[in-house]
């Protein structure tokens, strides 16, 4: 898979995009499924869009379930990747990442797991600027094949991406870079609450999730809480993703653990520090040890949470709610 000028493997013709949408059942219906059932919405080889950013509102539970379900050859795109990316690579389900930044977090230097898989050539890392990622999802959400931007020009980031095209603006003659639309086959997004139909409310930082939801050909929501449609209707201005863009709803408390969910819990930093020390010490054996214990070991997501420990969960929840303190 090598891009040539103007050819993006992630960008499709308009009619194909419309056909994909027509095939979906967009009626107002109950879409609640279990975490395990939701994995069937992702097929081997899919281009997956992941919501949130770095350690925030990461759909960790969904990623965890996809690894357990043994998906293969996924291409995963996200604004910024953290330890979710490590898990996707070491879990053997992803062979290409499309992102602007990939490490566990700025506090811990460079991810040895990312380095191991990318430097050996086992995984391809397509690097775009953060704004370019946003404009690629935006173009996808708008139903147009590209967006013009004024960054990346002149840099080696641009040189590595022949699928982005430099043009002279037909109005001003200025140079612009056209970045191709990104329409994921499926988007994984975690929200604070939604109803059974998929009307989703997001508190705080929304990152690129609205564009991502509207660009994708399928959306799986995991949510801290399923609420009634009446509750959604009491504050429709808080609804950020409409039900007709959503295909599956999974109720999954602490669904971003050990990352954060705005207003509900902060990152579980003690677990993250344990994780980083283990996997950056030895990206193969350390990661294997982590996967055995925390991904393949537990019988359920609740059992995974129990492994993190009630103390750490409560501490994270207390800190999470403190954002609303005056």
């Amino acid at each position: 898979m090598v891009e040539t000028e103007g050819k993006s493997i992630d960008t499709h013709g308009y009619l194909e995009l419309r056909q994909e949408l027509l095939r979906r059942d967009r009626s107002l219906r109950d879409k609640v499924v279990s975490l395990e059932e939701a994995t069937s919405f992702v097929r081997d080889g899919d281009l997956v869009g992941i919501g949130g950013s770095t350690m925030s509102r990461t759909p960790m539970g969904m990623i965890w379930a996809l690894i357990r379900a043994g998906r293969k050859r996924l291409s995963c795109s996200r604004s910024i990747m953290s330890s979710d990316g490590d898990l996707l690579l070491a879990g053997g389900i992803c062979d290409r990442v499309v992102t602007s930044w990939f490490s566990q977090g700025i506090l811990w230097g460079v991810s040895k797991v990312m380095r191991h898989y990318v430097e050996t050539g086992n995984v391809r890392y397509d690097e775009w600027s953060h704004m370019a990622m946003g404009m690629r999802f935006r173009a996808g959400a708008m139903g147009v094949p590209f967006m013009p931007i004024r960054s990346m020009l002149g840099s080696d980031v641009q040189k590595q991406r022949p699928e982005a095209i430099e043009i002279d603006c037909p109005f001003t003659g200025e140079k612009l870079l056209l970045v191709p639309a990104l329409n994921p086959d499926v988007a994984l997004i975690h929200v604070q609450r939604c109803d059974a139909y998929g009307n989703a409310q997001i508190d705080g930082l929304q990152f690129m999730d609205i564009d991502l939801a509207m660009a994708a050909n399928k959306v799986i929501l995991t949510t801290e809480r399923i609420v009634s449609n009446d509750q959604i209707r009491r504050a429709p201005d808080q609804t950020k993703i409409p039900f007709f863009a959503v295909d599956a709803v999974v109720e999954l408390p602490f669904g971003c653990a050990p990352h954060e969910c705005y207003g509900v819990y902060e990152p579980m930093l003690r677990h993250m520090e344990y994780y980083v020390a283990l996997v950056n010490g030895d990206p193969v054996k350390g990661m294997q040890q982590y996967m055995d214990r925390f991904v393949h070991g537990p019988k359920s997501w609740s059992e995974f949470l129990a492994l993190l420990g009630i103390e750490e969960l409560l501490e994270a929840a207390r800190a999470g709610e403190s954002i609303y303190d005056a």
């Binding site: 602007s100 990939f102 460079v110 430097e119 600027s129 953060h130």
Partner: peptide, 12 residues
Amino acid sequence: KTRLPGTGGGND
């Protein structure tokens, strides 16, 4: 020799 994390918003 080393793959670093990447641009993030740095390039922008």
